[in-house]
Nucleic acid binder design. Structure first.
Ligand SMILES: [Mn+2]
Ligand SMILES: [Mn+2]
Ligand SMILES: [Zn+2]
Ligand SMILES: [Zn+2]
Lengths: 145, 145
DNA sequence: CAAAATTTGATAATGATTCTCAATAAAAAT
DNA sequence: ATTTTTATTGAGAATCATTATCAAATTTTG
């Protein structure tokens, strides 16, 4: 059992939930994606390998993974929530090209620190934050059709 | 005619659209709100004063105001988009208390600059950005029931 | 193995947003 | 001012992502 599965199992145990076969399948599919995905993409991927995982169960399981700190709902795009796994990944933020739809990741750099200070000042306990920038990427701006 | 209306009119003219009575009503309602609102709230407010502005028209008009640079869709909360007018306002970011739902605004501080530099590096032309932090506010953390 | 507790899949329901289209209003032309 | 053209509106239907329901299946416990 890999790390993520252990984390998930612990998380589940704490709330007397079970690490079932289906939940494991979903977990694996989530960690097979190394970029941002939406629920339907995941559903199709899972369906291709092992049939019979209901969309409902995916919708139920993703929030668990988020609470377990393994997954993040990082952006909303085309009216859908998009997720990415975060276990063992650096925090980063996203540029979203509004022309081609590409997502470019950027290391959080100095922002992290600033945010922490701001939160401190307002006596606000941050659980998570999200930074999304929209614009036109270099490719689209130059030639890119 | 106030400033916002002029800006909006110019924007509309450029695309041979018309500043109609209904659009003006919506514009006014938008600038009567000095905090974050969703479509339905706006709809109710407008309905209270002047009857007969269709939800459809509001949904059509808000994107125009956004494109005109008068309005911003700043956050998503309870599955609804939330807007705020930005004409003549400082850029700021938002803390969202996940317990009480309160929104706390923070001046952008040093973040603005950092973001600009990052965009430069990646040769990305930013049109807009959004920063939302989620956590528990001071009030909720101490006594606050 | 039987009983208790949790989970799942199928599908219906919800709700925000978008679409359609005939009726209306605004601007341009005569 | 009247007509013609063009853009807009309201009402309601349609879409579509997400949730809720519930009986059947799985997992855990004793
Ligand atoms: Mn990412
Ligand atoms: Mn604000
Ligand atoms: Zn692009
Ligand atoms: Zn609070």
């Amino acid at each position: 059992m890999d790390d993520q599965a252990k984390v998930f199992e612990n998380f589940l145990k704490k709330r007397s939930l079970k690490l079932t076969r289906t939940r494991r399948l979903i977990l694996e599919a989530v960690f097979r994606n190394h970029d941002h995905f939406d629920v339907d993409t995941l559903y199709d991927q899972i369906k291709t390998r092992h049939q019979n995982v209901s969309r409902a169960t995916i919708y139920r399981t993703l929030p668990l993974l988020v609470q377990a700190g393994l997954l993040k709902q990082s952006l909303r795009c085309q009216d859908k929530d998009h997720y990415e796994h975060i276990y063992g990944h650096e925090r980063h933020l996203h540029f979203l090209c509004t022309r081609c739809g590409n997502i470019i990741e950027i290391e959080s750099g100095g922002i992290e620190k600033i945010i922490r200070v701001m939160a401190e000042e307002k006596d606000f306990k941050i659980m998570e934050y999200n930074i999304v920038m929209r614009g036109i990427c270099a490719n689209c701006r130059t030639g890119g059709e």
